[in-house]
Simulated assay, not measured.
Amino acid sequence: MSTKRELAAKLGVVVGFDDPTADLEQYRTPPAVASHLVHLADLNGDLDGQWVVDLGCGTGMLALGAALCGPERVVGVDLDPDALTTAAGNRQRVGTTTAVSWIQADATGHAVCPDEPVTVLMNPPFGAQNGNEHADRAFLETAADIAAVSYSIHNSGSAEFVESFAADHGGNVTAAYRSSFTLPRQFEFHEADSREIDVELFRIEWA
């Protein structure tokens, strides 16, 4: 089992979006945060020998982190074909031999319908853009439908919403963790060169 530091180092080669879209909130998940989430899933036995699905995988940070931890197969789903092309290149950079598939589709549209429940990893949009509030709800709905367990990253202050949503959909939040990461300046409306934001990571078991 890799340590969190080892995972972060291996994921440091994963590149982000060439031309990110603000409406899709396309930000590269920092390796430190990704390794934290993946390491927790690994410690809980939710990756080794399992099918893992990364909903809204972007350029593959969480999917490839999971692929380093001995799953049977990893599937990354994203709407952006350019991001998936980058994800395929990132797989070569990371060097994992685990079977990884990339699917271009709406991650909330049930593009993946496995016969057995899977482990879902995801960093859904926080809903920061006008008209996109609570964008993470649709991702949680999909996780509730296909996952035995899910790990997700949400904006700070989301605990009440996530716990309530899980309870209403037959799920149970079994662990919550605090973290933070730096958002770089990559859109015109960004005023600062970078901004530190607090986030929360949740593990949910689904019925």
Rank of each mutant, 00 (worst) to 15 (best):
E6K: 11
K10C: 06
L11E: 05
G12E: 04
G12V: 08
V15W: 03
G16V: 07
G16W: 03
G16L: 02
P20V: 04
T21S: 14
D23Q: 12
L24S: 04
E25T: 02
Q26M: 01
Y27T: 08
Y27V: 05
P31G: 08
A34T: 10
H36T: 13
L37R: 08
V38E: 05
L40C: 08
D42N: 13
D46W: 09
D46I: 03
L47Y: 11
L47V: 15
D48N: 13
V52T: 04
L55H: 04
L55V: 02
C57A: 14
T59E: 00
L62D: 09
L62K: 09
A67I: 05
C69W: 02
G70P: 03
G70W: 04
E72N: 10
D78K: 00
D78L: 00
P81Y: 05
A83R: 07
L84Q: 00
T85F: 02
T86D: 01
T86M: 09
A87Y: 05
G89K: 07
R91K: 14
R91N: 01
Q92M: 09
G95D: 01
T96D: 00
T96M: 01
A99I: 07
S101M: 07
I103A: 00
Q104S: 01
T108V: 07
T108D: 03
H110S: 15
H110I: 04
P114A: 08
E116F: 10
T119W: 07
V120I: 12
N123K: 04
P125F: 03
Q129F: 00
N130H: 11
E133V: 06
D136H: 14
L140G: 12
T142W: 01
I146F: 06
A147I: 05
S150C: 11
Y151W: 15
H154T: 09
S156F: 13
S156C: 12
A159V: 10
E160D: 15
V162C: 09
S164W: 04
F165C: 11
A166T: 12
A167L: 11
G170R: 06
G171R: 10
G171E: 06
N172Q: 15
A175F: 07
A175M: 12
R178Y: 09
R178K: 14
S179E: 09
T182P: 01
P184S: 06
Q186F: 06
F187M: 07
E188K: 15
H190S: 08
E191R: 15
D193C: 01
D193T: 13
S194N: 13
D198K: 15
D198Y: 09
E200W: 11
F202A: 11
I204L: 07
E205D: 15
A207M: 10
